[in-house]
Structure formats: C-alpha cells, structure tokens
Design a protein around this nucleic acid. Structure first.
Lengths: 120, 120
DNA sequence: TTGATATTGCAAGAATTATTGAAATATGGG
DNA sequence: CCCATATTTCAATAATTCTTGCAATATCAA
C-alpha cells in the first residue's frame, strides 16, 4: 500500500454518505447488497448512490458486480486490512519497548481471509 | 463514536500531508515530536504544519501539549482504536456464520491501553 | 419490440478545503 | 528588557469535491 492509495481510501470514507454505505455493506457481509437496497438503507437517491459507490469502488474499498439488472456491491475486506496496517504498522518504530502494551500494529477484520464465495 | 466524529477523523487522514504527519507520530510513539521535527520529517513549512496539525488535533486523532517553546504532539491511540472499531464493528451483523473466518471485528494498535506517561 | 425497472453519465452551480507569505504571539536566555 | 526561536493567525486566492435533475443505457418480462 502506498500513500496515494491510502489517501484515496481515507478520502472515500471521509464523507457521511459513503461511510454509511461502507458500514451498511460491512454489515451485509460477502454477499453484498444491490445498489437500490443500499440507497434505501442509507436514505439517498440513485444518482447520489451511484456517484458515491463509484468512489468507494475506485478506492478499492468495495467491489461491484452485475447480477441481472442489479449491481451488487460488497466490501473488499483485504483492502481494509491493508489500509489499517498502513496506518499503524510503523507504530513505535516496531520497538515495543517504547510502548506500554508493546503489540506490533495489527488490524483484524471479520470475514476471514477475504473471498468467501457467495454469489460473486 | 458517532458518524460525525468518524467522518471528521477520516477527513483528517484523507490528505497526503496529514497522513504523513500521522504516520510520523505513530512511529515516534507516546513521547511524540515537536512541531518543527514533524515539519522537517514531512517536508512542509511551519504554517502548513500548524494548519494540518490542528486538523488532526480537532479530529481527536492526536494530542498536543507545550514543552517550553515547543509544542509536542502524539497520536491518541485509543481514538484510532475506536475509529477502526466503528468502521467494522457491525461486520456481517455480528453473525460469524455468514463469514468464513468468523472473527468479530477487532482493531489493535501498538502502545497498549493508550497513555504511557513519557513527557506529557 | 415495448414497457418497466435499475443504474449511470452529464453539466453547472454551490460549498468546502488547501496554500501562501507576512505579521502576530509565546517563550527562554542573556 | 531585548533578541532569537518556535508556532499560530490572518486573509485572499486557488483547487477540489458535492449536489441535483434529467437524459441515456442496460436488462428483464410480456
């Protein structure tokens, strides 16, 4: 993960609607939701959802795929993990004796090692 | 953590200079760095650093305190933990059977339970 | 093919955020 | 008290991002 990628990801989450979309999709799990379902859940219009969903996809935080007339989207769990890692991986320069707890940076997100089939 | 707080935190990190500042401070650990040291490390001017540092402080991601003529800043590790949690805590609606790995959302950052004295 | 549903693209204005240097403030040392 | 260092404030400009409705595209079902 480079800085540009990380900034793009943070920017994608730095918006009330997109954060709500992201959290809605995190809750939905690997099978995701259709654009319409997300728009309804978040309370925004189709145009607005499309705009914001595209931002999340572009940032690599979500993935979208077509199922008939619907576009389903879900969170790219691995990307979230990499993002968290990028933020904190150099914590205390990796010298735990500088810190109290002394854990090396680590971020774990639900849904295991990412891809768990479902209807992708 | 509410949505407004989370958006403010993500916005604070959604900028190349501020992300660099944040990561520099994460690496520095609880004792932090002075504004000048950060500015030099990141390669920006004093005015610019002051502007961006204030954003990080305002977002609650960092804390700053005066030591003589210097202002030192360090990362608020607990705030980072809460932010990560807010992003992923509802993962798969807390129903691990929907996910492969089945972990509940969890984000761990170095430096233990936050405050480890040093020169605060 | 036609109609209905689902989603995206476009364009212009509105709003927010970033950049810059110069001046102002705070502190410690002599 | 005066000077040098460290940081912040101010103000104007520049740049980016958001919002909105409507038209366009894609797919399915009849």
């Amino acid at each position: 993960m480079d800085e540009t990628t990380a900034v793009r990801a943070m920017s994608a989450l730095a918006h009330a609607h997109r954060l709500a979309i992201f959290r809605t999709l995190i809750a939905a799990g690997p099978s995701g939701l259709s654009a319409g379902e997300v728009a309804r859940a978040v309370g925004i219009g189709a145009t607005s959802l499309s705009f914001h969903m595209k931002e999340l996809d572009r940032a690599g935080l979500t993935r979208s795929w077509r199922v008939g007339r619907f576009i389903r989207s879900s969170v790219e769990v691995e990307a979230v993990r990499r993002l968290f890692g990028f933020l904190v991986d150099d914590c205390c320069q990796g010298r735990p004796e500088l810190c109290g707890g002394g854990l090396t940076a680590n971020a774990v997100v639900c849904c295991g090692q990412d891809d768990n089939e479902s209807n992708r």
